[in-house]
């Protein structure tokens, strides 16, 4: 494992910690898209089905369990916690699941490397992860007064994706036969989706103003 991969994973973990701190600390999930969170939960479930059959390292197994556990907790809080669910912007969070899930499923069936259940679901998770942030970005555009934690959450997630690209570049030059066009294409698409957000995030940081995305 190289330093980019580790840093990427830590950013990912940190983004989840920031989100959980926001939700449980101030008992509010304002500005957070439940749809994106549920899609991430689906991504983790479909990708980590190999948790018992494909042992890579203790680090991987623990991280998989952490991601599954924390994303389940976030969805649980937003859906069922008596106080927190009241702060969810349900009317604004209108992105259609099917718009993201259906194309991912079709593409997974069409392009899977091997046709086993695990492999098709893994491919599905790669496609779905690339676009799962979209409901969140749409919701951010609609939210006035985005709070710092929400802005930082999305920034950390975007950084995780960027660092993974550096990790792939590193692996491409240091490992034999490391050719993963599917993963790379999806990863680059996913990172491009964040570009607009990054632009406004840095602008607000530079001008010391509150983050706001133009509609």
């Amino acid at each position: 494992m190289n330093v980019f991969r580790l840093a990427g994973d830590m950013m990912h973990l940190l983004s989840i910690v920031v989100l959980l701190l926001k939700i449980t600390g101030i008992k509010s999930c304002r500005g957070i898209s439940l749809k994106t969170q549920e899609l991430y939960l689906l991504v983790f479930i479909t990708r980590y089905l190999d948790i018992f059959t494909n042992f890579v390292s203790l680090y991987n197994t623990v991280m998989k369990l952490v991601f599954l556990g924390t994303s389940s907790a976030i969805v649980y809080y937003m859906r069922y916690d008596r106080i927190i669910k009241l702060t969810y912007d349900k009317e604004q969070d209108t992105f259609k699941y099917l718009l993201l899930v259906a194309p991912s499923a079709v593409l997974a069936l069409a392009t899977s490397h091997v046709y086993t259940v695990l492999e098709v679901l893994w491919t599905f998770s790669i496609y779905l992860e690339a676009v799962a942030i979209m409901p969140q970005l749409v919701l951010l555009q609609r939210t006035q007064n985005i709070d710092n934690l929400t802005g930082n959450y999305v920034f950390l997630l975007g950084s995780y994706r960027g660092l993974y690209i550096l990790n792939w570049i590193y692996r491409f030059f240091t490992e034999k036969h490391y050719r993963q066009w599917l993963v790379w294409t999806c990863g680059v698409v996913q990172t491009i989706i964040y570009c607009d957000f990054f632009y406004y995030y840095f602008l607000s940081w530079q001008n010391n103003e509150k983050l706001a995305l133009p509609a």
């Binding site: 994973d9 190999d50 494909n54 991987n60 991280m63 893994w122 990790n167 036969h177 993963v183």
Partner: peptide, 10 residues
């Protein structure tokens, strides 16, 4: 081997 390499990330 290819499978392992493809699936060793998170």
């Amino acid at each position: 081997e290819l499978y392992r390499q493809q699936h060793d990330e998170l």
